[in-house]
């Protein structure tokens, strides 16, 4: 199996502040990879570089062999990115939103309709898709956005904190939606979170990031045994003390 993501000594500075201090990790094809860490650890910065939104100060990042800086357009075709705390256009309805976004990928009618139908199914919003996004709850909005991200059948899906700001029930649904889709389609996902339990449930492999560096990497079980912890939360605490 090939490599979906390859990050080597990635650095990023904002003004004088170094947000990433040499990040290294790899994501295999068809796995769900979790990037976990506290606020300000550098998760969003890493994902934005992969999403071609910002350029690294130094180091390399590749998505399926395409360099995110030199080959940004090729990366954009195969990637789907859900920003942290994203919303949708409030004056469009859910259906219109899916159709608008699908238009950038599907250029003929049948392909477009197929894509929109996939979006409808993944969202599970049914008739509510005909209501304006403005009237949606946070949970419904998130489901619409994740459906948008997945309906285009991307080779790599990047979800930045897909359940942040949702209540327990909505977060549970959204997590179920992601896991279910991944199992069915065998897709590659890179998910960030600071909810360790969520990551343990969703991800095949995780990387712990803190203050711009990766402090541990492996399957949840590997990490837990390495730090002799009952869960990832405890492992994280141990790891940061060591680092």
């Amino acid at each position: 199996m090939g490599l979906a993501v390859k990050i080597q000594d990635l650095r990023k500075s904002f003004g004088g502040f170094e947000a990433l201090k040499g990040v290294n990790f790899e994501v295999d094809e068809a796995e769900i990879f979790g990037l976990i860490g506290p606020n300000g650890a550098g998760k969003t910065t890493t994902l934005r570089i992969l999403g071609t939104l910002i350029r690294p100060t130094s180091g390399q990042a590749e998505v399926f062999g395409h360099d995110v800086v030199k080959d940004a357009n090729a990366v954009r075709v195969i990637l789907s990115y859900l920003p942290e705390d994203a919303g949708a256009y409030q004056y469009l309805n859910g259906e219109e939103y899916l159709r608008f976004m699908a238009g950038f990928y599907a250029h003929e009618k049948t392909a477009l309709e197929e894509m929109v139908q996939a979006g409808r199914d993944i969202s599970g919003l049914g008739d509510r898709l005909r209501d304006r996004v403005n009237d949606y709850s946070r949970g419904m909005k998130r489901r619409l956005l994740i459906a948008r991200a997945l309906m285009i059948k991307p080779k790599l899906t990047i979800l930045d904190e897909p359940t942040s700001g949702l209540d327990v029930i909505q977060a549970y649904h959204v997590r179920g939606m992601i896991k279910d889709y991944a199992k069915r389609m065998g897709v590659t996902m890179l998910v960030s979170s600071h909810n360790m339990l969520e990551v343990e449930y969703l991800c095949d492999r995780v990387a712990l990031i803190n203050e711009g560096v990766i402090i541990a990497e492996g399957t949840p079980t590997q990490i837990k045994t390495r730090y002799n912890a009952v869960n990832l939360e405890q492992a994280f605490m141990e790891a940061t003390q060591l680092g």
Binding site: G51, T52, L53, N73, R76, V77, L79, S80, Y81, L82, P83, A86, M101, F104, Y105
Partner: peptide
């Protein structure tokens, strides 16, 4: 931000 990650 979303638009800017699309192939456009």
């Amino acid at each position: 931000e979303t638009l800017m990650t699309l192939p456009v």
